[in-house]
Nucleic acid binder design. Sequence first.
DNA 1: CAATCCTGTATCATATTTAATACAGAAATC
DNA 2: GATTTCTGTATTAAATATGATACAGGATTG
Lengths: 280, 280
Amino acid sequence: MTNLEPPKARRVYLLLRDRIASGEYRARSSLPSEPALAEQNGVSRVTVRRALDQLASEGLIERRPGAGTFVKGGQASLPMTGDISNVLAHLVEMGQTTEVKLLSFGYIVPPPAIVEALRLDPDERTQRSVRLRLIDGQPFSYLVTNVPERIGLSYSEADLASTPLLELLERSGLVAERASQTVGATLAGPDTAEPLGLEVGAALLSMTRVVYDPSGKGIEHLQALYRPDRYSFQLDLQRTGAGDARSWKPVDRPRKVAAPARSGRRAPARRPAMEKGSAE
Amino acid sequence: MTNLEPPKARRVYLLLRDRIASGEYRARSSLPSEPALAEQNGVSRVTVRRALDQLASEGLIERRPGAGTFVKGGQASLPMTGDISNVLAHLVEMGQTTEVKLLSFGYIVPPPAIVEALRLDPDERTQRSVRLRLIDGQPFSYLVTNVPERIGLSYSEADLASTPLLELLERSGLVAERASQTVGATLAGPDTAEPLGLEVGAALLSMTRVVYDPSGKGIEHLQALYRPDRYSFQLDLQRTGAGDARSWKPVDRPRKVAAPARSGRRAPARRPAMEKGSAE
DNA sequence: CAATCCTGTATCATATTTAATACAGAAATC
DNA sequence: GATTTCTGTATTAAATATGATACAGGATTG
């Protein structure tokens, strides 16, 4: 009756893209032939073709008439990684440049989810800002912050575009004492897809962070959405103790530890890396 | 020419679902009318209708002829949360039951990404297993592990279905000394969507973990995919030190600290929670 | 009760997606 | 060089998604 599933060509495209990224089809080697792919996925060759067209237009594969379709190993621009236990630190550049675009700014009546998270009084308003963070001119995160109105008034709209929010808060004499972060995944909607330069329906890494002052009142609510191909979280752990007391402890990212595995069944990665964990 | 984007009805569906989950449309209150939604999204009413049909069939909204469409506040079954700094601990149940289904098991020539991550010799084979983890009979994670062949031989296929892999490895006398975890997001492909009970194209939270022994050799490569509506990572942080030395430290999840913000622009959450961080 | 706004339902037209099929030309194999 | 296998291209038909429109009937408002 009603079919809300993605079109078949898209399915095949996603599948192949994933397999290429995960290294299942090795670079410089060939993919199965179009007829083979068609049969494997139960679709027609025309459909397979459309998926391949897309991959080719993104530069992921190379097609040689008569020969086959080949994975274009190469400069898969690697994602930055944020040290998840230190995501609150300022963003330190490593030759790369990050800039911030302020997409929207204003005072609103926050949705109930935010009221609850920040423990606001009913009808208390918040300053809501939407920012886009770019690296080398390429957007990689979409940030929606809510700050209680009285706090938000302590800095200007222009400040937001240049200074990390937490720093602004602390300058105002506020103390960020505790924070709670949750990491999940969502799909890009029309509103988030466009500024991030993605299609609607792309996968996004999401982080929600609530920062509290010593009294337990909420200071900041951040909803961050990341392009997983440009940003991911990393946490390095070290075993400590012995016997039953053995447990894992986060360690300050041992640099150059390994060719670290990438997330999301994606590309193998030599890591250019950033010296310190980055914020937002 | 070629359009690989999801159908419009799906876009609207995703958008609304996100807004409902994020609390943007409050529970027990009404959504904009069908004509309004149609205009806002630049689609016809018929299309909006299809999106609403889907939401209704999932029980997220309630439609009252003549009156409007209402958000069905309710028992949005909350996601489990894993303490991200402790994801290596065993899974401890809290009244809930987890079981494991072994979907596939065998020895393979691993893709290059795995070879690199585990620092295998070229042509060294790995034991690859695919497992599905369920809670209360509902799947929430899809796990692909690769272990160097010589190590994998130290335990049986049946062991895998009952015992956490890391425990098996340590029983064999191996020492897990260091681990590296990367968290990202992907889309569900046909292969992962089906066992997880999702549609193709759904968002997945992904974690890649590589465990090393003291010599720096890779012991285990885990690629985990989570349903974000059933599982998410959480990290609680506490400010320590003073002045320039101020920094954030992970803290063992302070229970009942707040109505914690949820990930992915999703539902507000009272948290039933698990006592200890869970594995995989 | 009348006016209005909403959802439920149906019909018809159009654009797009998918499939089935055929054939040309490039590349690899023997 | 002949054969096979592959991609490039085109044409057709069917299925599907989308849009435009109309109207019935419940809910709400005044």
